[in-house]
Amino acid sequence: MVSEQEYREVEAFIFKEARYADESAYDDWEALWEDDAKYWVPTSPDADTEVDISHIFDNRSRIATRIRQLKSGFRHSQTPCSPMRRIISNIEISPLNEHEYEVAANFMLMELAVQSTRDMNLWGGAINYRLRRVEGELRLFYKKIMLVDADEPIANLAFLI
């Protein structure tokens, strides 16, 4: 169990993370991550990264490369950035240990592919976050996004999901 105060604090953090992603606020988003980061979009719920391919499986240095590429001005698949808004809901928070939390949530994201087709893409699924308290501040060290259609043909996923 987490206290009401902890719940609100964790919730505020994941809403902030969602807003940074929605607004392609790359530096702010990257600054949320710890060094042992895992940013993961698997293709199935029981995927094993030792043997299975994922859409995205970034460690901290790959997150940095991803952000450098997005900021280069030539990431044509995100130039201009997709207008996006996402809803994070069904939040369940549990403590992992004294200073870490596991958060499960659902999400829905509307993304407009203004760089090419101008399709309004609907993305949705489950998210697992892991947060760590470092010197009083919450930090992100794990985010797994299990898309409902992860194993189906999907459009470009070059934005921050």
Partner: peptide
């Protein structure tokens, strides 16, 4: 679709 190369080709 989430890689560093193919989104540009798409």
């Amino acid at each position: 679709p989430g890689s560093f190369l193919l989104p540009e080709d798409a």
